[in-house]
Simulated assay, not measured.
Amino acid sequence: MKPELQDLPLIDNSGGHRFELTVNHSTAFMEYGDREGALALFHTEVPGQLEGQGVGTALVEKVLAEIERQQRQLIPLCPFVTSYLKRHPEWQRLVAPAYQRWFQPAPQP
């Protein structure tokens, strides 16, 4: 995570079912919901003016840290989150068991 984003607070807007990260008066967010006893992450959105600045990555990292802090499991339904987890397998420990297979290597022929 870029140092300038590290100290920004992650807001849990539980009424809107989304985590929010505000940078320079613009808000990136990740929609979530409870499913199967875990926290399902549905969609991540970063405003155009924040794209390419590491804001999406910071949001994912802050959300994963919050899920871990709450001792919960996650269901990564958002393609951005799934892509992040594939690049950072150390976070796959949070993935609910039924979804772990998404991160297993493909069988070799």
Rank of each mutant, 00 (worst) to 15 (best):
V95W: 02
V81N: 02
Q71E: 10
L50N: 05
Q53P: 02
A38T: 05
Q49M: 07
Y99E: 13
P79V: 11
E61F: 00
P47T: 11
A58D: 03
L39T: 15
H25Q: 15
Q92I: 11
L59W: 13
Q104H: 12
L21N: 08
E68P: 03
E31C: 14
Q53I: 06
G54Q: 05
A40T: 03
Q100M: 14
G37F: 09
A58W: 10
R69G: 05
F80D: 04
E31M: 14
E20R: 01
T27A: 09
Y84F: 15
F103A: 03
H25Y: 13
R69P: 11
T57A: 11
I75A: 00
A65E: 07
G48P: 12
G33I: 06
E61D: 07
S26V: 13
Q53N: 11
V46N: 05
P97F: 06
Q100C: 12
L74K: 05
L64N: 01
Q92T: 11
L21W: 05
K62M: 05
V60I: 15
E90K: 13
K86T: 09
T27Q: 08
L77W: 15
L39A: 13
L85S: 04
Q92W: 02
A38Y: 10
T22M: 02
K86Q: 12
A65P: 00
T27E: 05
E66K: 14
G48T: 13
R69N: 12
H88G: 04
P105Q: 04
A98S: 06
A65M: 07
T82N: 09
G54M: 10
Q53D: 06
L21I: 04
P76K: 08
R35M: 10
V95P: 02
A58Y: 05
P97E: 02
R87Q: 14
F80E: 09
W102M: 13
L50W: 11
A96N: 04
R87V: 06
Q70K: 09
Q70H: 13
F103W: 01
G56S: 01
A38E: 01
N24F: 06
C78I: 07
A28S: 14
H25S: 13
T57D: 08
W91Q: 05
T22C: 12
R93T: 12
Q104I: 12
V55M: 00
Y32Q: 10
P47I: 00
L94Q: 09
M30P: 07
L94G: 08
R87K: 15
E61R: 13
L77H: 15
G54C: 01
P76R: 04
V95D: 00
A65Q: 12
T44F: 05
S83E: 11
A65H: 12
P97C: 02
G54V: 04
Y84T: 06
V55R: 03
R93C: 11
P76W: 09
S83Q: 10
L74I: 15
A98I: 04
L59D: 08
P97H: 02
A38P: 10
P89N: 05
E68N: 10
Q100E: 14
G33Y: 15
W91R: 00
Q100L: 14
F29E: 03
G48R: 14
P97T: 01
L77R: 14
L77V: 04
H25F: 12
D34A: 04
F42S: 09
V81R: 07
S83L: 10
L94A: 08
L64T: 00
R101C: 08
Y32S: 03
A28T: 11
R93K: 15
R87L: 13
D34W: 15
A98T: 09
V46G: 06
T44D: 00
E61I: 04
